[in-house]
């Protein structure tokens, strides 16, 4: 059951009314990946009725003139962050789009990946072209519960207690080792390494004395970081009608070097992108896109489908946390 975008649609509808009344305020809808903003655009599209033109930004790479050819007064551009690549020469199309937006008398309604938006706003100052910014908020546990249970009767579902032992609860100490050389022999000395993520998970679990349903949605909100798209995906995994199994576990923390973290930041800021595009960004800095993508897939952070590499929804929160820690997203 997708999120209801009533408030956001009303705000955008008002901007369309203002535009018809002669006041233009371009709109930027900013959200984390997987949020489900296309649902919002569908509602806006219905509200706009005739006189609007909708296009995916990816298609403007091949045919930018399609914007100029259109006579529609309201232009809806989906995933506008796809108009740039983080490389030298990778901002030309975005510059062209921004010039078009600022010199046009049309109303632009655009959607953006929040990580790309922050980056582009610092680099190109794109925020000044979109006076009306609709930032899709994180949902709390109650909102997620209402969203996911809206299609069920009260008491229809049974929430089961947390199942941890069978699924292998993350251990506090992981086994690691270091090598020493003694009499030209290499000796491997085992040593324990604390996993702070699992310590935090255990501490939070011990404090949780709530009823199973409340505990489930509390944990779902935390693990999904309040993202309805991610919450919906995890919900589908947990739902075994008419039972809901509490199989949610805090993911382990990410340990990547800077090169692989940079590759991950590029994927995060796009949601998904072609390996060829990833390669264009990474090759000049001496990183193989194929190798980085394969490693990130092995770590369970992305998946590769043909020539497209995409972020895993369930890895969104820990990816963003890791990249903030190493200051690759700000």
């Amino acid at each position: 059951m997708p999120r209801d975008f009533k408030e956001e649609v009303e705000v955008i509808e008002r901007s369309m009314e203002d535009f018809r009344g002669g006041k233009r305020r371009n709109v930027a809808v900013i959200s984390d990946p997987f949020y489900g903003e296309s649902e919002l655009l569908d509602q806006v599209w219905e509200a706009a009725a005739s006189g609007a033109f909708r296009v995916k930004a990816g298609s403007l790479k091949e045919d930018f003139e399609i914007l100029e050819r259109s006579s529609a007064k309201i232009v809806v551009v989906e995933e506008a962050h796809r108009l740039y690549l983080r490389k030298i020469g990778g901002f030309d199309l975005m510059d062209r789009f921004m010039n078009f937006v600022s010199s046009s008398d049309r109303l632009f309604i655009t959607t953006w990946n929040s990580f790309s938006w922050k980056y582009l706003d610092e680099v190109l100052g794109i925020g000044q072209h979109f006076p009306l910014k609709v930032v899709l908020p994180r949902m709390d546990a109650g909102e997620i519960r209402d969203m996911l249970l809206s299609g069920y009767e009260e008491g229809e579902l049974t929430f089961l207690e947390e199942e941890t032992e069978e699924r292998g609860e993350p251990k506090i100490f992981k086994r690691s080792s270091f090598e020493i050389r003694l009499l030209s022999q290499r000796i491997e000395i085992p040593r324990p390494v604390a996993d702070l993520g699992s310590v935090r998970s255990r501490l939070q679990k011990k404090e949780d004395k709530r009823p199973p349903m409340e505990a489930f949605f509390g944990k779902l909100a935390r693990i999904s970081d309040g993202n309805p798209g991610v919450a919906d995906l995890l919900w589908k995994e947990a739902l075994d009608y008419p039972e809901v199994r509490d199989c949610l576990t805090d993911p382990p923390s990410i340990d990547l070097d800077l090169d692989d973290s940079f590759a991950l930041s590029i994927i995060l800021s796009m949601g998904s992108l072609d390996l060829a595009d990833l390669s264009e960004v990474l090759e000049p800095v001496g990183t193989s896109a194929e190798r980085a993508a394969a490693l990130l897939e092995e770590r369970g952070l992305v998946f590769i489908d043909g020539e497209v590499v995409s972020l895993r929804a369930e890895a969104l929160k820990r990816t963003a946390e890791h990249l903030r820690r190493v200051r690759l997203v700000w």
Binding site: K87, L328, W330
Partner: peptide, 21 residues
């Protein structure tokens, strides 16, 4: 233009209102 783009696309860069390029 090239130098600016080389700087802002680096994996080592940090940009904010107080830390402009």
């Amino acid at each position: 233009k090239i130098l600016r783009e080389a700087a802002v696309t680096s994996k080592y860069v940090y940009i904010s209102n107080k830390r402009p390029v």
